[in-house]
Design a protein around this nucleic acid. Structure first.
Lengths: 247, 247
DNA sequence: CGTGTTCTTGATGATCATCAAAGGTGGTGG
DNA sequence: CCACCACCTTTGATGATCATCAAGAACACG
């Protein structure tokens, strides 16, 4: 069995049989999802699967932008570094999400894996050629970009105008939302990021995030059945906290 | 003279003669800038110019997304409202900038003018038809979207991880930068936004912004020759403040 | 079973929001 | 042309939120 077929088998095993895009990964999102069969076949032929370990970087800030990635399985954070070494997490990406597309020559942020992951990697030059052939692919990227922009604007509102607990509530609700997008509708959510990651995402310190989780737990709003998992018990309370008065 | 010719004359008068895109407005940016002549002519034929007053809304959050706008002359702010009435300014837009493109059915934020303005307005349906005919136009929107995304991510870093004065310094430097992009290289910058607008952009209160301006003035870092104008006297100090230690 | 990492909790203090009031500025109408 | 008015800006006093510093507890990993 050649390496590509091996990777495809791995993907099927990870996701279960079904309407899987063999190359670009997810049953629900991914790059190829809305493409027609002909386009899809050509994109498939150009892509390759790669397995990474936890904490590996898919790319660093400033690297030459040579590939576009689809997360077949795993979670990553997008981070921008500050001159003094602190970092701002721009967002988290989950199974099925697309990362690293830019029209510039270098990546404007780094992508670091939080878990081990399988990614589908497509060379930029090949992608550009495909886009010239299939304009629908370009349209697909425009849609993705507009979605990312809207999400980043949401985050700007959260960080700019909400209290610590309201930010945390917004984060938990967005976790649930992104699980929902991936048709993972069980009550218990995967939360592979550390308190420090969440703090760097919300513009807080890890201590403040930890106190927030403790407060929510004490009030019975959430439960943490194990490390790396949360269950939201009182969505209504969390929603009211994000939407309500600044206090 | 018909209204369209009148508007074009107004544009020429405002910008000075030169390589002006008669419909989409700016000598330096705008929608049509990188398009070839044939595409341009077709786009021109579909667009219309409209004059708005200060504080007018080009569109409200949630409005049906019926048009794409290019600012021929004037300044606008993009704002998202919070349930309690406070607002987050997502960004400012200047002469030559494009606003209001979305693939969704409604605008996800409002665009309010800070000054009187002339805009070039293009119907969404006509734009979609043009994009089918000229894929380069779609590419243009993708480039614009990626730029906006990068700018919003920058802003997230500023709001999430910097002190009040560092945020203000970053804002002033970005004002200078956007003036530079428009080839307005004089030392004195237009600053048509109020302290409250700036505060809502930076995630601060207007009082804190005012104190910041006072501090910068006292240190001799900036000068405000008149209302709505700033001159940066010590760019190096402002840069160090944004880049340096949190303190 | 030990070791390093992550998480929790406490004590303290700085930054910035809030509340309050006065001084400017521009625009409008008498 | 001046006076009034609305809005913007400045400045001060006070306090709340959250960062910082510190130490111990829980957990994961080899």
């Amino acid at each position: 069995m050649n390496p590509l077929d091996a990777a495809r088998r791995m993907v099927r095993d990870a996701l279960g049989e079904g309407e899987i895009c063999g190359t670009c990964g997810s049953r629900v999102a991914g790059l190829c999802r809305p493409l027609d069969a002909a386009t899809l076949d050509d994109v498939l032929a150009e892509a390759e699967h790669v397995v990474f370990g936890a904490r590996d970087y898919l790319f660093q800030e400033g690297d030459r932008a040579g590939h576009v990635f689809t997360l077949v399985h795993g979670t990553a954070k997008l981070v921008r570094l500050l001159p003094d070494g602190r970092e701002q997490v721009l967002g988290f990406r989950f199974t099925g999400d697309v990362l690293g597309y830019t029209t510039g020559g270098t990546y404007p942020f780094a992508a670091q894996l939080l878990t081990g992951a399988t990614v589908c990697r497509l060379d930029r030059h090949r992608l550009d050629a495909l886009m010239r052939r299939y304009p629908s692919l370009e349209r697909r990227f425009l849609d993705l970009c507009i979605q990312e922009l809207a999400a980043t604007q949401d985050q700007l509102v959260t960080v700019g105008r909400r209290t610590a607990e309201a930010r945390l509530a917004a984060f938990l609700l967005s976790l649930a939302e992104s699980g929902h997008r991936r048709h993972i509708d069980g009550p218990v959510l995967d939360m592979p990021m550390t308190r420090a990651d969440i703090a760097d995402f919300l513009g807080l310190t890890l201590e403040t995030v930890s106190r927030g989780f403790t407060a929510f737990r004490r009030r019975g709003w959430i439960r943490e059945p194990s490390h790396g998992r949360v269950e939201i018990l009182r969505r209504d309370e969390l929603t009211e906290l994000t939407d309500g008065e600044p206090g």
